[in-house]
């Protein structure tokens, strides 16, 4: 698949268009002609620039009198073959309901063509390519074919590119019968197309082999977390960490406990503060582990993990007690 930067700013976009797309001049109705010309240039030369076309629709949205159905249809045709980018729906989003009924002298072709275009788009979305071709070649789409897509250079090939974008990640090898229905090509045309893609074709079995790509090689992996703590948070936790080490060293030794808890500013000898001490004893082992976990050391060995779990459960139980106490205070 392509990267989004090319989609947001195709290399074929000229500076004039870039200024219109990125600046406030995009709102000036006088510029609609430039953008429309650019659209017809895209139609003729197999280029595509979604953002520039959206800018046209934006101008139509704000200035209903500029509305030109042929332009809208051509934009939608171009957007159709951009799948899997959601361009088609992005364009429809901007098509506000027309507040004024169409001029009776010039019937608006959009209302009758829009359902066809939408159905075609839905079929592409669902990868139902044979059904797409069937609908596209049917009578329903006749006016679309005869009046619009015939002008759009390489339209059918761009649909095939959509197909290839769907097939490439999903297949390692694909039968030519199947591919033929997807691409609406057969015989020599199909062989030539497969060759052009650089896929190798086994004529005997009728199976094409796709070159490896990042999406059609599958591997099972185990994802491990690896989190870096922001420096400030680490610093904040430092005193708790010290306290923890002392408490761990000899839990029953009054002096050390006293000392470490003093670091927190709590008078441990005050019987009214036992809650804090209990809290520290229980809560801080969690922090000790946290330090090790989060200094980007992954937890690998199993023994360590089980002890963490045990502590976690004690800790979480205690957390509930503390928070209950806390609300009482």
């Amino acid at each position: 698949m392509v990267s989004a930067s090319e989609w947001a700013a195709p290399p074929t976009r000229t500076e004039l268009i870039e200024n219109l797309v990125s600046g406030v001049d995009r709102y000036n109705p006088n510029n609609v002609g430039i953008l429309e010309d650019y659209l017809y240039h895209q139609i003729r030369s197999q280029e595509y620039d979604c953002l520039a076309n959206l800018a046209i629709l934006k101008l139509y949205q704000f200035n209903p009198d500029l509305y030109n159905p042929d332009v809208v249809i051509n934009i939608l045709i171009k957007a159709l073959t951009a799948y899997p980018f959601p361009d088609f729906n992005l364009c429809i989003s901007l098509l506000d309901e027309r507040p004024f009924p169409a001029n009776p002298d010039e019937p608006d072709p959009l209302p009758s063509l829009l359902p066809v275009l939408t159905s075609l788009y839905n079929l592409l979305q669902q990868c139902r390519f044979p059904a797409f071709w069937a609908l596209y070649r049917s009578d329903k789409a006749e006016s679309l074919r005869d009046n619009y897509t015939v002008e759009c250079v390489g339209f059918e090939d761009s649909v095939r590119e959509v197909v290839i974008r769907a097939v490439t990640p999903a297949f390692k090898r694909i039968g030519t019968d199947r591919l033929s229905t997807y691409l609406d090509l057969s015989g020599d045309d199909l062989t030539a197309y497969i060759e052009k893609l650089g896929w190798s074709l086994d004529a005997e079995s009728g199976v094409a082999t796709l070159p490896l790509n990042p999406d059609n090689q599958i591997v099972s992996t185990v994802v491990q977390e690896n989190i870096q703590l922001p420096r400030t948070l680490k610093k904040d936790l430092m005193w708790l960490h010290y306290a923890n080490l002392h408490v761990r060293a000899d839990k029953n030794h009054r002096t050390h406990t006293n000392r470490c808890v003093n670091g927190t500013g709590v008078d441990i000898d005050d019987p009214r503060r036992t809650d804090v001490v209990i809290y520290l004893l229980f809560a801080i082992p969690g922090l000790y582990v946290l330090q090790h976990t989060l200094d980007s050391v992954r937890i690998r060995d199993k023994g360590h993990q089980s002890s963490i779990r045990k502590r976690s459960s004690i800790l979480s139980k205690y957390m509930r007690i503390v928070s209950r106490e806390n609300t009482r205070i």
Binding site: I218, V219, V223, E225, D275, Y279, G286, T293, M319, I329
Partner: peptide, 30 residues
Amino acid sequence: HIAESTVGRRYAGWFIRNTEHAQRVYDTIK
């Protein structure tokens, strides 16, 4: 052919949240 990736158990988020909780409880007590 199917391959499944598994995610190892995540501790960090749990500890960060509880540490923050601990810090809050402690601040309130203090």
